[in-house]
């Protein structure tokens, strides 16, 4: 290859890049976006947020029943401790404790073989 041809090839490279620069940027942007979405979805699934997300398909029936109780302010972390404040704490705690413990959650025979009719048939 002569010196002139070498110079011509080197000069040609920037031209090729500038010709496809826009498409290259679009491709790079799509790649970065896909990568970031993958990371976000992985975090969404691994963090347990997916289990709390009632906007997912399949939860329409229960979505409206989710609690929106943001009115509970709780007990103030600052201030004196005396009979009045301990009584106040007792009232708040009893109310929340009653709500939390009055239901035996995730219990029952909902997943029993008999309930689902997938138990072994009797041999008689």
């Amino acid at each position: 290859m002569s010196e002139e041809e070498t110079v011509a090839t080197v000069d040609h490279l920037p031209d090729r890049w500038s010709r496809h620069r826009f498409m290259g940027l679009v491709g790079l942007t799509i790649f970065v976006a896909l990568f970031l979405v993958s990371v976000a979805l992985a975090l969404y699934n691994s963090s347990g947020a997916a289990q709390l997300d009632l906007t997912r398909p399949g939860y329409q029936s229960v979505r409206e029943q989710a609690g929106h109780s943001t009115s509970f302010d709780g007990f103030a972390a600052n201030g004196p401790l005396n009979k009045e404040t301990t009584d106040q704490f007792r009232t708040l705690y009893d109310t929340q404790a009653e709500k939390a413990t009055n239901v035996d959650s995730f219990a029952g025979n909902a997943m029993d073989e008999q309930t689902l009719s997938i138990d072994a048939p009797s041999e008689n």
Binding site: Q51, L52, L54, G58, Y59, S61, V62, Q65, A66, G67, S69, F72, D73, G74, F75, A76, A77, N78, G79, L81, T85, F89, L92, Y93, Q96, A97, K99, A100, V103, S105, F106, A110, M111
Partner: peptide, 30 residues
């Protein structure tokens, strides 16, 4: 059951969290 358990998890979880963050921790701090 999957759907009703998800609802139970959200509602129970809120209650359990509130007992920890809004009652136990503030009292211990005080």
């Amino acid at each position: 059951l999957h759907a009703s358990d998800a609802l139970l998890r959200v509602n129970r979880g809120q209650l359990y969290e509130s007992i920890s963050t809004k009652l136990m921790a503030p009292l211990n701090s005080r």
